[in-house]
Nucleic acid binder design. Structure first.
Lengths: 140, 140
DNA sequence: AGCCTATCGTTGCACTTGCAACGATGTCAA
DNA sequence: TTGACATCGTTGCAAGTGCAACGATAGGCT
């Protein structure tokens, strides 16, 4: 019988953990605000940068550009994001948060911080080396 | 301007890392053997346990049971997995690897170990605490 | 035995996803 | 200026996904 110990296989563990954490966190805002994970990511990027094109979010966040485009379309319909034609390059769409969008970010931010703190608590003293490891792998 | 630092937000980092690692690893077998990530996971579980029902893989691997069912169907068509009716409980489908399936596992296993070693190398001395952190979070 | 409820695996459905192709716009050199 | 090529965001399409509902089977209670 060939054997492969999947549950101690790093890519598998990471996938399990990532899905668990994403699910737990998105549960905090999905039902309450009606936005999905890609939508939240677009908004969080905009909250940080002010104005971004679809392409910039695609690059920053590693999201497919069609994913960004559709998330932005839904967010525009929901009133959280404004889409403007870039004045100096009309191919670009300038995305930015509306007033409602900024309000939503302000509501979610404390939830996000609290959730993150709760996760880090579970790691105790291991939190620092854990985050260190993540960053080292993400850079490579 | 409300701000939220997404790139240092743990759920986001984990999602990025997990996707990167899954993508890198699946590239090693996807094209060569024509199997997807869910299919690989089903096979790896079977290689470990010998025979499992759809429900057991669903529980073990945290995969939706329809996902398991469809992966198993594709793997049966591909000749890697056999589906048998459980003798003592006819509701159950007994999944097991075929000879071809075992051969595939034997080909992928060294690739998996090599990839994992390469990732752990990037972590150096931080590898042990990193894995520790993953396991601690997965248990909770 | 007969019924009631639980559990199994599959399937229908609506939705999301990644990829490729498209029209629109920009850039640059002849 | 014109033409060739690059880049932007959107959309069509096929495939995958989670969820709920389904028929089939099992188990327990009377």
């Amino acid at each position: 019988m060939p054997q492969f110990h999947l549950e101690s296989f790093l890519p598998y563990e990471l996938a399990q953990l990532s899905e668990q954490v994403s699910r737990e966190f998105s549960a905090l805002y999905r039902e309450r605000f009606g936005i999905s994970i890609p939508e939240w990511r677009v908004m969080a990027n905009l909250s940080q940068a002010g104005t971004l094109s679809v392409r910039e979010i695609h690059t920053r966040a590693g999201m497919d550009k069609s994913k960004v485009s559709r998330a932005a379309a839904r967010l525009e319909t929901a009133g959280y994001v404004a889409k403007t034609e870039d004045a100096s390059d009309r191919r670009l769409v300038a995305l930015s948060l509306t007033e409602a969008g900024r309000g939503l970010i302000e509501e979610i931010t404390p939830l996000a911080r609290a959730y993150e703190a709760q996760v880090l608590d579970r790691l105790g003293a291991g939190a620092a080396p854990f985050r260190d490891g993540i960053r080292r792998l993400l850079d490579g």
